[in-house]
Amino acid sequence: MKGAIIKYAQDNIDTDVIIPGQYLKVHDYAELATHAMEGLDPDFHSKVKEGDFILSGKNFGCGSSREHAPIALSHSGIKAVLALSFARIFYRNSVDGAFLLPIEIDEDAYNEISEGDEIDIDISTNEIKNITKNKTYKMKPFSEIIGKIISAGGIFKYNPDQN
């Protein structure tokens, strides 16, 4: 899975800035996407492209349980968020609804990958390749259940007897 990086070099990006509370009444996902990251980066909607990845620091997605957060990012075109760590509800929402991949990275990847870098993520080998800088990093492997829910395509397609 290849894409370009949009980098927010900070910790604790919360779900209130990913999708501010006033938009939780919006049920049209395309419209919701136009407000993604509005609380942090008003230019996000104009710069994001289909297939992009977000790169950020610790505790990404902290705060509210609103699934609108991964939905808004996903419908903006974001396929994965790479972060040093994730808040757990955001993490499960991303996976259970099959909206995007939450990928835990190490400090080297966080520091060395820059805005605009072309990245190739391979979850079968747990490798993140920075094509722009020709460097490869290891991602933290998904746990057993998360890997299975991802490969099934979300919690409703996951069947423990088959997957």
């Binding site: 349980s65 699934e67 919690i155 409703f156």
Partner: peptide, 26 residues
């Protein structure tokens, strides 16, 4: 509950936690 502050109910010795909408459906 589909709300992160479900942790409140833990004050009564309940295991209580917030979930998102996919899990609400589940």
């Amino acid at each position: 509950c589909g709300d992160s502050h479900t942790s409140t109910h833990g004050a009564f010795g309940a295991l209580a936690f917030g979930i998102g909408t996919s899990d609400v459906e589940h």
